[in-house]
Structures are given as C-alpha cells and as structure tokens.
Design a protein around this nucleic acid. Sequence first.
DNA 1: CTGAAAGCGCTTACAG
DNA 2: CTGAAAGCGCTTACAG
Lengths: 335, 335
Amino acid sequence: MRATIYDVAREAGVSIATVSHVINGKGKISRERREEILDIMKRLNYRPNAIASALAGKRTFTLGLLVPDISNPFFAEIARSVEDQGHQLGYSVIICSTDNQEEKVKRYVNLLRQKQVDGVIIGTGISHGELLKPLQEHSLAIALIARDNPALDASSVRVHDLEGGRLAAEHLLHLGHRRLAVLAENERVTSSSDRVRGFVEAAASHGLVLPPGCIAACDHKIEDGYRRAKAMLELAVRPTALFCCNDLLAIGALRAARELGLRVPEECSVVSFDDTILASVTDPPLTVIAQPIEQMGRMAVDLVVRGLSGKGDPARRIVLPPELIVRQSTALPPA
Amino acid sequence: MRATIYDVAREAGVSIATVSHVINGKGKISRERREEILDIMKRLNYRPNAIASALAGKRTFTLGLLVPDISNPFFAEIARSVEDQGHQLGYSVIICSTDNQEEKVKRYVNLLRQKQVDGVIIGTGISHGELLKPLQEHSLAIALIARDNPALDASSVRVHDLEGGRLAAEHLLHLGHRRLAVLAENERVTSSSDRVRGFVEAAASHGLVLPPGCIAACDHKIEDGYRRAKAMLELAVRPTALFCCNDLLAIGALRAARELGLRVPEECSVVSFDDTILASVTDPPLTVIAQPIEQMGRMAVDLVVRGLSGKGDPARRIVLPPELIVRQSTALPPA
DNA sequence: CTGAAAGCGCTTACAG
DNA sequence: CTGAAAGCGCTTACAG
C-alpha cells in the first residue's frame, strides 16, 4: 500500500495536522521538525493523495480543455500550449473533443463538473452559449480561446480576426490583385466572419467590391475547401487570389489549383489563416495570417487560474495582433 | 451550492446508502423507490461527486496519456483515438507531453500517481523503463502504444514495424529501384530500427546490400530530415529512392529534393511511414506505410481498462499489420 | 428491501 | 509551535 499522511505522522511522532502543515507550508513549524518530517516523507516515498486533498476542500488542480477535435493541428498546438502553461502552474488538463456536437459538449460539461475540475478552457464552437451557462452557474472558472462570445460574461483571448482579414487583403492588394475570392467557414463562426469582414472592408477601401458569389462558406475540412476552390477557379473570369480562413481550406485550394493545372503562386495566389504546421509543409509553403497560438494558450490558462483566486474580477477580453507571414504561395497576379 | 447525496436522501426520505445503491445499480431497491429517487436527482440536478466517489474506493475513471508531444500530428491523432475510446468507457484522459525528457516524465508520472489515475497509456520514448517501474509497482495499469519494451512486463499495441520496413522496400524494389537510402530516427528508438531492419532485410533478399552510409539517423523533425536528405541527394551517385521512417522526415526529404530541383517522384521516389494528416497534404501526396492509428488508440485503452478489472491477466502484446498506401511520391526510377 | 456506521486521506478552524 | 476533532461526499460491508 502507498504511504498515507498517517504513516508519516506516526513515523515522526506527530499529528497528521502537523504533517499537513508542512505539506502546505502553513502554520509555524519548528525548523528541525519540518526537516525531519520532510525526510520521512522522502524515505516513505510519500505523495499526498490529490483526491483526498481535493475532497477536503482544496482544488483538484485539473482543467478541462474543450475543443472541436484534438487531432486538428490547430487545436493540437493550442493543447500543447495550454498543457505546458497548466503544468507550469500545477494543473493537469483533460482533453475533450466535441466535434462541435451539442450532445458531446453536454456530456463533457457534465463530466468535468462531476470531476470537479477547477476551470475549463473553451475552444469549441460557440453556438453553445446555453450549454456553457451551467459551468458558470457552478462558479467554474472559464476562459474562451480563439473565440469570444459577447453573450457570455467570460474571459477570452483571441486574435484580432478583423485585422487579420485586413492584413490578408492589403497584402494581395499591394501585389496588384483585383480579382479576389474568399473561402470562409460557416458564417455562424464569428471568428471566420470577422476575417471575411476585415478582408471585404479593406478591399472596399481600395475601391473594390467583392460580389457575394466570391465568398464561399465551407465546412472545416480539406475536401470542402477543394470543392469550393475548384468551382471558383473554373469560372470564366477566375480570381487571381484566394483568401482562405484556415489552413485546411487553403490546402484544399492548393489541391484544386494543382488539379486544374494552375501554378501557385504564378497563376493564383493563396493566403491562409492560422499558421499551423500544415502551412509550412505544403508546396508551396503558405503565406499566412498567423495566430499567436502559443501565446493564446498560455494566456487562456492564466485567465482561468486568475479567475480561480478571483475575488470575482470582471471578465477580461484579450485581443492579440495577427501577423502576416509571407511565404511562397503569393506573388504578383498573372499579367 | 451543488446538491449532494444527502440532499437527495433527505428529499426522498431515505438514507444515503439507498441513494448510493440506486446510483450504482446495486442491491435490491423497490421499483417505485428507485424511480422516485431518480426523479429527485433529476429535479435537483444532482451529479455524484466523482472525487468523493473515488476517495471512497471507486476508480477515478481517469487515464494518463504520456506522449512526446501532443502537437505532433501523429500523437494528436493517437490522442483523439484514445480520448474517444476512453470516453466511450467512461474515462477521461489527461495529456502529458514529455518531450522525451527524463525530468518531465518523472514529474508527470508522480502527478498521475498523486491524482490516482486508474491507468496510463505510454507513447513516449522507451529509454524510461526505470521511470515506469514505479507506475507498475503501484499496480497502476499501463499499456504501451506504438512501441514495446521487452524489459517491461506490460501490455502493448503497435504496428509490425519490421513488416512495414519490408513493405516499403518491396514496393520500391518492384518499381525497379536499386539505389536506396534511408532516413531513420535515433537508433535507440526500436520502432525505427525495426523499420530499417525490415527494409534492409528485404533489400538483401533481393541481392541488394545497403552500404551503411545510406542510412542516416535523424532527429524527429523536418529540418533534420531536410538536412540529411539533402546531403544524400547531393552525392555523385545519388539514391533514386528514399525511405523515411516518419512523415516529418519525409517532408524534409521532399523539401530537399525540391530545393535541389529534383522532381518527386520522377527523379526521386519517397516512401514515408505513419500516415498522419501530413502525408496527404504534401505535394506530391506521400506514398506511405500506414500505422493503424485509430485502432491502436482504441486497443490501448481496452488493454489498460481490461488490466483494471484484471485478475492479474498476463500482459498482452498486440502487433497490428501495416498497410502500404500508394499515393504519388513513388514511381519508376529515372531511366 | 433499507439503514446505521465506519472509513477513504486529507484540510482547517480552534484551542492550548 | 502543535494536536484533537469535525468534515469533505461518497461506498461498502453488515445487520436487520
């Protein structure tokens, strides 16, 4: 059997209260006693039982991470960052892939509640405002990552999507592109629609109006990006540049161009969004509006952990600047 | 405050033992009583506290997943599969990215022990036999995934690496390649060295001896694959085909070929191993020896969970067949 | 079929 | 500076 607090107390000839105090660095314990107890703990290879500790009133030091799909590189990278910062602060993280399905969100939320996690970081679809309410009601600390939900009084950290869309447009505009098209996500995804809006606004400010047919709403997968891009590139007057709202869609676009025999970037430029590992692995490597993934993960953890000690601090909404990374998928439009 | 078992007991006019029984489907409770109690639980939105339940002797229904890096697509895909099967069986999973660093492994192992997880699935480097011993001593169920460690009496599920190497060689040999080279991982990684061995053996059985200079040990990253592939492809008599022990290395090889102006597959064939999302996203898409990632994740969970109920069943070592997926990175050698 | 009671391994006022 | 005691929310023999 594993050693318990009783074992070390007996061994040291003190009460378990005293042992508990040295574990938690509380109360005043004489120097020698403390060191003696520390020694005994080491000798017995004693580790406080986190379950018991949590039940007795301390935190569980566990966080939940809700994402659509951990195998999606974007969320895998988010997860890594969340994990690292969590670990740094003493928290472990439970992964919850929801596939953006209401049913799964519900199940996971219940589970996290039962497991008494201290907080949850939410990177999953946001149509679930209702489902998240229960979390807040039970005064669970929550933070949204890579998205925001005005209806929720919750902290969040995300990239400035509007600005990102603008950056993409300006890059293409400066290269001289005039026939632009957009591969967007589902329009209910606000981060995507913000990107599109930024893109459209920037184009407008250069006197360019994007006809609605130039904006395709796609599912979040390569195949759909491929399909929609292909349709656009087969048009009589085809766009010379495509703005894709995430790396998966951009890969689909690349594939469509290749299949149609269009060289990228010579005959068709592509700007992506996110900058996961995928963006640097394609041929050509993707020019992309990068999200500060690592930083967002770190800050999201800080937000929920801060919310924990929180004397009810108001929600903080952090918006980080996007960055244009020029690689090789963009160039001057064909003459 | 959240409702407790006392609240529903009081409300129902029964003892908490009875409530506990209906929660766990134990003992005989009269039909009406059960339903009444169920109703009350629903009305109070009662969820048993998993922490208390675990302390009182039940499982924590939590699994640890040790991997080198969750942001590596291979492990992200493993994680997804583990998560799904775990969730199916009522378990949540805590992610632990160790970067194959002994220090981090140690910290995570201690953490998992303190959190009293029921089992841990290990996909991380295996030089850590020593570090894993403590897990077993505390009779934690463990299962290795995508690797095995003969020194450990533990269940495992992996692909038949030797056979995979063989498949790769035979594919290239049948195409007519004779000048072969290999991008391997660190030779201490047994899965990689098995792949290389299979490859070399198959070549030998076709009367081909690979000179040692044709096998490069690489770090597990794109840059290193790139560097080593480049060196090989710059040789006076360069290989006409490269076998890469994982997708990251293959991507590096693709990049090197591109930079040297060598067309893949016309001038240089590339066979990869793993078949993560990366393999289907490159240009050209990679011919690859696929690991049954989804299946391995599922079986690993089954192995640890079975080990839990286990009346000390002996360790099971499952070896799954690899599959050759021919995409567009391989062709006949240049004339 | 149901309940009283002990116990899981801790923490935390409180008293001294 | 240290300890006795109550309590966290459950489960599980055991008794009836």
